[in-house]
Amino acid sequence: MEVKLEKQYPLPVAPAQAWALLCDLRATAACMPGAEITEQLSETSYKGAVKVKVGPATAQFGGTVDVLERSDADRRVVMRGKGADKGGSSASMDLTATIEADPANANACVLNGSAMVIVNGKFAQFGGRMMVSVSEMLLGQFVNQFSATAQSIAAASAASDGAVAAETVVAPPPPPVRELDGLSIVWALIKGWLARLFGRKS
């Protein structure tokens, strides 16, 4: 099961701050509900885990994230994540993310994400038809958290009189959701579907 995603998310922070957060893989991962970096294997290679809960069933994906390419000048990073769970599913994602400055506003930027996600096994078999909606929803959650984190960093750095360089920031308190909850996913999907249904009629 293959899903291609192309997304643009406007963020209310300066490009440098968003880029700094994006380059901090631990902090970025923390923005994804249920995901965490558990170990750094090398300069560009990490071990991570994602936990998904659907009703009473929990799937724990374990795998690796490799930073394949990073360009500070273009504010572009290319990553490959691969993982599998013990229940017979595996997934991989090639992600290219860039931070683009907003020409109209120095304190705003756009996060461009382009991802190719491949899911195999039970997740593909059962969830195939929901893959696009689920992925979009997860990315939405991620971006909200990413934006909030970036803003709190921006606020913190402003509070310290702008003296602290972006590189030295530490991640803010962990996000409130610690695992992907399938029930909330289903609910969000239903809400999305209803919205589309009525949106089309109006």
Binding site: M1, E2, I118, V119, N120, G121, A124, Q125, F126, G128, R129
Partner: peptide, 11 residues
């Protein structure tokens, strides 16, 4: 079947 060989209808 999808391109990866997942059978998308086995229930």
């Amino acid at each position: 079947f999808d391109a990866q060989g997942n059978l998308l209808g086995n229930t």
